[in-house]
Design a protein around this nucleic acid. Structure first.
Lengths: 108, 108
DNA sequence: TATAAGTGTAACCATATGGTTACGCAAATA
DNA sequence: TATTTGCGTAACCATATGGTTACACTTATA
């Protein structure tokens, strides 16, 4: 099984967990409470996130704190970002098209 | 099954297909030739990419051209990009830590 | 018109994913 | 010490993924 950042963010629940952990460090139970699915299901997602390196655990007594490792998102950012020129050009040409339409209408 | 941009880019083969189609429009066979896996396997990946909206097909006779739809990557970009302050701060604080170490060493 | 080329898809397979309930165990607490 | 709390994980299930080979169909070509 693939254990990289792209796998980590492929699941919507895992993206929501990341969103939570971006602002605060939470225990496993605290994360689980935020979702409707069972605690073991959340545990599995946390395990995958950990194996993908996106979160780290910090065990304090019987409490396991989940810490986000935001640097691990960078490769995904870089991969997607290499195409932004591509979609910007698309949007530019769309805007040009809109502008053209407007110019035509103004002429009428 | 989830059919969104995050699902599209979760698989390394699909990311490679996107990389190919970013620079040129290729037929299904032309895409398949670039990989070691079978043509039906590539067909499946192309189908998923299409269902995720990341590519479009343009049928010309018996040839099916695959066109990238780069705007569909934008939601993934935006999602990841919301965390760049987070990892930049991490890197900043790492750099500060390095700088501190260097300053300490210089004082010795 | 017979054949080749380009492609989809069915059938199959092994494994992964994403969920559940049930249970166990260590740490904290009464 | 007995009980509660926090959590992992096993066992199970349904479905998805990612690959294969075999076959069918349409379009182009000889």
């Amino acid at each position: 099984m693939r254990r990289d950042v792209f796998q980590a963010i492929a699941d919507p629940i895992r993206r929501d967990i990341i969103e939570l952990l971006a602002t605060e460090t939470l225990s496993v139970n605290e994360v689980a409470e935020k979702f409707k699915i069972s605690r073991p299901a959340i545990s599995k997602h946390l395990k995958i996130l950990n194996e993908c390196g996106v979160i780290k655990f910090n065990q304090i007594g019987r409490v396991r704190l989940c810490l986000m490792q935001p640097q691990k998102l960078i490769p995904a950012f870089l991969w997607i970002n290499q195409y932004n020129k591509l979609w910007e050009n698309r949007i530019d040409s769309f805007e040009n098209y809109i502008n053209e339409l407007q110019t035509k209408n103004e002429k009428k």
